[in-house]
Design a protein around this nucleic acid. Structure first.
Lengths: 204, 204
DNA sequence: GTCTATATGTTGATAGAC
DNA sequence: GTCTATCAACATATAGAC
């Protein structure tokens, strides 16, 4: 309710955020392929050139979306970690949280893996991505032999791969139709994580 | 060496195949986003309208590429299955074959999961996809409790998810730079498959 | 089966006014 | 910080000639 902005401003207090929202809406409707800067501008009610004051080009807007997705993911991982006690349970919960994130925030998920972003050209995004995995790596270290970093790293990649795969297959329809499919996939990825951890002696 | 085609034909014995090759080349260079029917036609040396004699629209050409990808994948899975004896080894080998396929035939991999194809609108593609997994499901049945179909189905989805995830993370760079990364990811996905199977009592 | 030509639409990005 | 106006480039798809 704070509309104390100057009269010379047009109808947005935060155009960048509005453009990011519009981009997610477009991705939701037609995939990353269906997004364009022009259409995002139209949806937001601004001219076609306005976005370029805030984002250098199309890629930078997509990168901003991916960063927002990282933040949402980090929040969800934090919740998952807080609700469980044992490291194994925590990792299973994180995997399930990732799968649920993919289903409930599909455009965010797609902006992360499907936008073809060159992370080396978007250091802020690389940082945001690393920050998401940091608390997970810390938990993994408790399960790794010797508590060392190397085995923990292998474990983290194994878990992210597993979760990424389940998320993808869920969106492909391998678990049936929503909403039942979401719960099913979350259960299954948690169980698979547990199975993987249980048999993890084979990993190192 | 069979150039017995009529003189009224232009410079292609098989334009559809040539267009599919060109499409893969474009995907390799710039992702699915970088593909267009027009550019594929130019690369192939034919006019912009020629492709439309063979493919109803852009999507149908992409679907044809995905079907070609399924065939290549099926071939590789067949090799992997033939080279191992025990069901568990066979499944590990299939997972590794999928990851290697993603790395060695990246545009094919991308046409499968990244083209946003509505499989229900391309029944031929749906069939090709199902055919790929059929021999894998048969092996899984040997490991499932009671030899029943349900547990085998859960196992197949678990394995495809795992392999899909490792493939994605490999292409994202989580395993380092090629070519060493490819071998590493293949080893790891095989080990993870073994670990998953070993702990699989948790799955059912 | 392939061509030329074309209709029709969209895009990303910039220049300059306010 | 947003506008209007505009550019060149490119897309999909079709019609009709050969």
């Amino acid at each position: 309710m704070e509309k104390v902005r100057s009269r010379t401003s047009y109808h947005h207090g935060d155009l960048p955020a509005a453009l990011i929202d519009a981009t997610f809406a477009l991705i939701e409707e037609n995939g990353v392929h269906g997004f364009s800067v022009a259409e995002a501008a139209r949806r937001t009610g601004v001219s076609i050139s306005a976005p370029y004051r805030h984002f250098a080009d199309r890629e930078e807007l997509l990168a901003a979306c991916a960063i927002a997705a990282c933040e949402e993911l980090q929040r969800r991982f934090g919740e998952a970690l807080a609700q469980r006690q044992s490291p194994a349970d925590q990792l299973s919960a994180v995997a399930a949280a990732y799968v649920r994130f993919a289903a409930e925030r599909r455009p965010m998920f797609e902006s992360l893996y499907g936008a073809g972003l060159d992370k080396s050209r978007h250091p802020q995004l690389a940082d945001a991505g690393a920050a998401v995995l940091m608390p997970v790596a810390e938990v993994a270290r408790k399960l790794a032999p010797g508590g060392g970093g190397e085995a923990a790293g292998i474990l983290v990649v194994a878990l992210t791969s597993l979760a990424q795969g389940y998320a993808t297959m869920l969106l492909e329809g391998s678990f049936g139709e929503p909403p039942a499919a979401v719960d099913l996939a979350c259960e299954r990825v948690a169980a698979a994580t547990a199975a993987l951890l249980r048999g993890r002696s084979l990993l190192f």
